[in-house]
Amino acid sequence: MGAVSSAALPRRGELRLPPYLPLLFPAVAFMLAMYGWPFLSSFYQSFSVAAREGALGLDNYAKAWELYRKDIAFTFAATILNTFLAGVVAVLFSVYFRLRQNRVSAILAALFKLPIFIPFVVVSQMMTSFLAPHGLLNIALAQLGLVDLERPLQLFNFAGLSFGFAWKQVPFAVLIIHGGFQMIDNSYIEAARSSGAGMLKVILRVLVPMNKSSIVAALVLVYSSIVGTFTLPYMIIGGKTPTTITVDIAHRVNYFRDFGVANALGVCSYVMVIFTAAYYLKSRIREARQEAAR
């Protein structure tokens, strides 16, 4: 009476596939074919030695390190710094949109989304004419008497690259971060203010920590996007050194057909992204568990 059939229970050591597996199959198969296979293929090729057919080694990595270590460091530094800058600016704008709900902020919030829909290649073209020695920015600053057009600001470098990244990436980050801020009920802000906190304390001690998951998500996505950006550094910095590894990859492939070194540089960019992606996934899983526990 009430006994469970022994046939329904898995035996010790027996592998029982979950019943929902067939439902997952199309999505998993697509991911493996479109992302998994190219990744594994490029990872494998990064170890292939061009001089010896079928041989594997670290030659491509040694060459990449020898030729492009400054660019790898530059890419990493530029990505970290620009992600940080984009994050700070995006948080400031998001806080403004959250706390000041008036006509001006509504117009700004609408205009702010426009760069998201402009492709990187168009942004790059815009930046080259905007930041050029006799471009719009220098002419505008000269009109204000801040710049001498005989010695204009030179912005086809790290500064110009950062400006371009911020212009393109901040709106995207604001979209995610502002969404998180909107989820925070006014009562949390009012509780802090009635406890004696000024606006700065409310932002730093209440709003930002309560919206940590959205901010982290935005930073991870912006970071991953910057690591893989090609057109903006290519058009702003071009062949000058240091440049980003995406430009180097294009250079190796276009001029030398050197897929081994290009793939080794590609693996470097994976490594740069994988830690942030792992952190992001881990925090999402933790949040989902906490949500489920409630």
Partner: peptide, 28 residues
């Protein structure tokens, strides 16, 4: 509001979820 010396209790409690009970009380 922060200078009025008023204590406020909300319908939804509005306890800051990232702070422990001690930190919620210590904040003010």
């Amino acid at each position: 509001p922060e200078k009025r010396g008023i204590g406020l209790v909300f319908q939804n409690y509005a306890l800051w979820p990232h702070m422990t009970v001690f930190k919620n009380l210590a904040f003010g």
